[in-house]
Design a protein around this nucleic acid. Structure first.
Lengths: 118, 118
DNA sequence: TGTCATTTATCGAAAATGATATATATCAGT
DNA sequence: ACTGATATATATCATTTTCGATAAATGACA
């Protein structure tokens, strides 16, 4: 690993880590989960995640700022949609890794995990 | 979504978010990347990631505390290994989602990235 | 105007981070 | 056993970021 390559690697790691950071809080992770099924208004997200509205709005602003979601206004409602395919892929992978048979919410404990890959 | 289910979901989200948080810093992400290929001593990790030793040690302690890695001592060296299969799966997914053409630091050995979801 | 939906501002407490200093553990040579 | 070197861990400090809570502001519509 040459120093130049190391620097590139660190750059990339910073980018990816930044994205992980956005999903590394329960509230934002729930929001992303919610949006996996399609667009949702802020109040729908609020109802379905239990995140308090001003905090939710701040989290949504973060996701917006990083380009992970886009918005569409319809009258008084604002609808959010996942915008970054990498996030969708990542969320899919998360579901696969942490809730192998189905939706999270019904706990996967007892699942014998496959032997560490490789 | 009943309130009871919502609470379960939030618990699960907290658990997963906690794991993401551990990977949400460039240094720790690089460490995890490094360990994908097998066990490494602290000084190897230090050399290959450029993370300064005391900070690296603190990060490794965090990963240890959360059960993501295990250690083995050989004389003066301590070797770290990825211990949680979910982390391995997640790292694989990350590589697939963020380095489709096989880049960061190369890696990506035969890993046929599991198709997005389900 | 008033109400609903959403955003922005602010505050205080807690956690994360880089840097630096120090401590512990293991080994080699004497 | 004592010394010094190497490998790793822990402690501390200063700065920044995060988060929940609360209050206030904006925008759309009736």
């Amino acid at each position: 690993m040459t120093p130049e390559n190391l620097e590139l690697l660190r750059d990339k790691a910073g980018e990816v880590a930044g994205m992980l950071k956005l999903l590394s809080h329960p509230n934002r992770l729930l929001v992303a989960c919610e949006l996996m099924d399609g667009e949702r208004s802020v109040s729908q997200i609020e109802d379905n995640t239990g995140v308090r509205q001003p905090n939710l709005s701040r989290d949504l602003a973060r996701l917006r700022a990083e380009g992970l979601v886009t918005t569409r206004r319809d009258a008084r409602h604002i609808y959010y949609t996942l915008a970054d395919p990498r996030i969708s892929a990542l969320m899919g992978a998360l579901c696969a890794a942490f809730a192998p048979d189905g939706k999270p919410g019904q706990d996967q404990r007892g699942t014998t995990p496959a032997e560490s890959v490789r």
